[in-house]
């Protein structure tokens, strides 16, 4: 089988042509072309098995200089889990102060990732 993919790892956005075979659950990549770096084939394999993406959004903060803190997952999560994960994140209520890097949620929805704050939110002065 063949698929054309755009690699999203870096801004080069390489257009990859991937050939692969599928036997039951097993997947074998036979050819990857179009990549500018060695990350391409690995990414292609993972993409064909099931797209994963980092998710970035905001969490509500009370009493801070801003009403929201930006957050992200520390590793990519399955694309098809993102809306469930968003629902989980929308429910969180934090209290200021929040520090960038602070873990907000561990293994949400059973995923092997952390949700971390990506911004400092000091107390409202």
């Amino acid at each position: 089988m063949r698929r054309e993919l755009v690699c999203v790892i870096c801004p080069n956005g390489c257009e990859l042509e991937v050939e692969y075979q599928k036997q039951g659950e097993a997947l074998e990549i036979t050819k990857v072309e179009g990549q500018l770096c060695k990350k391409g084939p690995k990414w292609a394999e993972s993409e064909i098995k099931g797209s994963v993406r980092t998710i970035c959004t905001s969490v509500s903060v009370e009493g801070g200089e801003l009403p929201l803190v930006s957050v992200r997952t520390t590793s990519p999560v399955p694309l098809n889990s993102i809306f469930d994960l968003m629902e989980e994140i929308k429910r969180i209520r934090l209290k200021a102060p929040v520090r960038s890097g602070q873990v907000i949620l561990k293994n949400p929805k059973g995923l092997r990732t952390l949700i971390i704050a990506t911004k400092d939110i000091p107390l409202k002065t």
Partner: peptide, 21 residues
């Protein structure tokens, strides 16, 4: 707040605020 900043410089996909920090 999206990620993808600093891939060249820090070899990491940071969000904007993290890159600024």
């Amino acid at each position: 707040i999206h990620d993808g900043f600093g891939l060249h410089r820090f070899k990491e996909a940071l969000s904007g605020p993290e890159y600024a920090k």
